[in-house]
């Protein structure tokens, strides 16, 4: 029942300057699955998923060893434009970060910078993306209001819509519900389950129940290492490693 592998990390070591943050990571991300990354604060979860769309390159002294592939081709190769990778591998951040522009402009932005000039196409795409992100009915009458006037949960769904508009294949979520209330969290989780039919999803989360609820595979990170990776039901019911068990049962972390 395992789907095909979309992204693959092989022997990944990662450093900020001389500090090694990730150590020998091997992990597969399956198509149309939700892969959850769990682990205590500072263990390297964000660092890891930021590699998957080359966002780590924003930090000047970042250094990577090993390989990361998308559909079999190396995304880190010199000949590969990070812009191409980021269009295929979208990202939703921990804190909702809509631009200080209107709701409409927030979504149109990704299309415009990618060279779309067709107004009708952009309008259709904005509506379509808002519908996919289950935000349309809440904002259809105020598309030209500032996005900053939306609630936190709405802002996060707007960020998801913005990401969907450029039609990525993989979507990375870095603790997308960390700053949301339970109802908004529930909406985002439902959305993720809906999205996985079309997209491949990786989600970093602090919340064990959330990982159990939404993911198909789970990787447990601890101090820069991937301690255990497997099907979510296995990880949560019969973990192989003692440390995994301790963490998911709340004995540390």
């Amino acid at each position: 029942m395992d789907n095909k592998i979309r992204m693959k990390a092989r022997d990944v070591n990662f450093y900020y300057g001389t500090a090694q943050i990730l150590n020998g990571i091997n992990l597969d991300i399956f198509a149309n699955n939700v892969t959850a990354i769990i682990g205590p604060s500072g263990c390297g979860k964000s660092t890891f998923i930021r590699l998957l769309n080359r966002m780590h390159e924003l930090v000047p002294n970042a250094r990577l060893e090993g390989s990361i592939t998308l559909d079999g081709s190396d995304i880190m190769a010199d000949a590969v434009d990070p812009v191409e990778i980021r269009r295929k591998v979208g990202m939703v951040f921990q804190k909702p970060n809509p631009f200080p522009k209107s709701i409409f402009e927030n979504i149109a932005y990704g299309l415009e910078i990618n060279g779309t000039r067709n107004k009708q196409f952009i309008e259709d795409k904005v509506v379509e993306s808002l519908k996919k992100a289950v935000l349309w009915h809440e904002v259809e009458k105020r598309l030209h209001d500032s996005a900053l006037r939306l609630s936190g949960g709405q802002q996060q769904r707007l960020c998801i819509a913005r990401c969907l508009a450029i039609e990525p294949e993989v979507i990375l979520f870095d603790e997308p519900c960390a700053s949301l209330d339970p109802i908004s969290t529930h909406k985002v989780e439902e959305l993720i389950l809906e999205l996985k039919k079309v997209y491949t999803i990786v989600i970093v989360t602090h919340n064990m129940q959330q990982a159990a609820r939404v993911s198909d595979h789970t990787g447990f990170f601890y101090m820069g290492k991937l301690v255990e990776f497997g099907r979510t039901e296995d990880i949560f019911t019969r973990p192989r490693e003692k440390r995994t068990e301790d963490y998911i049962t709340g004995r540390f972390g």
Binding site: N53, M55, L58, V83, E84, R86, R87, G90, M91, F93, N97, P98, F99, P100, Y109, G110, I113, N114, C159, R162, C163, I166
Partner: peptide
């Protein structure tokens, strides 16, 4: 804001 923009392929 910068991260959001770059992550969209800008």
């Amino acid at each position: 804001y910068e991260e959001a923009s770059l992550a969209l392929g800008a």
